[in-house]
Computed example of a mutant assay.
Amino acid sequence: MYTSLQQFIADYSNEAEGTQKLLDLLTDEALGQEVSPGYRTLGRLAWHIVTTVPEMLQRTGLQFDAPYAHAEAPVSATEIAATYRSAVQSMLEALRSQWTDETLQHEVNLYGDLWRNGYSLHVFLMHEVHHRGQMTILMRQAGLTLPGMYGPAKEEWTAMGMEAPVV
């Protein structure tokens, strides 16, 4: 649970940068990639990340500009990436202007339970990282080259003249 607004902003800004890198690599052709029939496509998963920004955080009372949680997913990868960038900026500005460290202790009914806002921010961040991991699998299946998130990707190891560790 976050007890410092600045700590969340620092953590989320770093993770959102990683998410933005992935979203910027999407192609319109790749948006239809699915792990198996009947599961979310890459485009639907990317849009889910975008719309979770307002869906979860606006439930806490935080007000900012972002797409409606159930808005139809765009067919343009560029539009998905741009919408995420805008929603994140709007959300971070709202946090800075509407909340304080004390606000993180306030409890709000989320999904049938009382969650402190600091916990909601933690869950929100973990939710995004979880779905970002799912995206990387679909992106690889679609033939896209990925950047490393917490260390070099296979292609980055190769570019450094090294063999990627298998273990």
Rank of each mutant, 00 (worst) to 15 (best):
M1W: 01
L5D: 10
Q6S: 14
Q6R: 09
A10R: 12
N14C: 01
E15N: 08
E17M: 10
L25K: 15
L25G: 08
A30C: 05
L31I: 08
L31P: 08
G32W: 02
E34M: 06
G38R: 06
L42F: 12
G43P: 13
H48A: 09
I49P: 05
I49K: 07
V53L: 12
V53G: 05
V53D: 10
M56Y: 11
L57E: 07
R59I: 01
G61N: 02
G61E: 02
L62V: 06
D65G: 02
A66D: 05
A66S: 10
P67Q: 06
H70T: 14
A71I: 10
A73S: 13
T78H: 11
E79T: 14
I80W: 04
T83F: 00
Y84T: 07
R85A: 15
A87G: 06
S90P: 03
L95Q: 09
L95K: 10
S97T: 15
W99F: 09
T100K: 04
E102L: 09
T103P: 01
L104D: 11
L104H: 04
H106V: 13
L110A: 09
W115I: 00
G118W: 12
S120K: 05
H122I: 12
F124P: 02
M126T: 15
M126L: 13
M126N: 15
H127R: 03
H130R: 05
H131E: 10
H131W: 02
R132H: 04
R132E: 10
L138K: 09
M139L: 05
R140N: 11
L144K: 06
P147E: 13
G148Y: 06
M149E: 03
Y150A: 09
G151H: 12
A159L: 07
P165T: 07
V166M: 14
V166P: 04
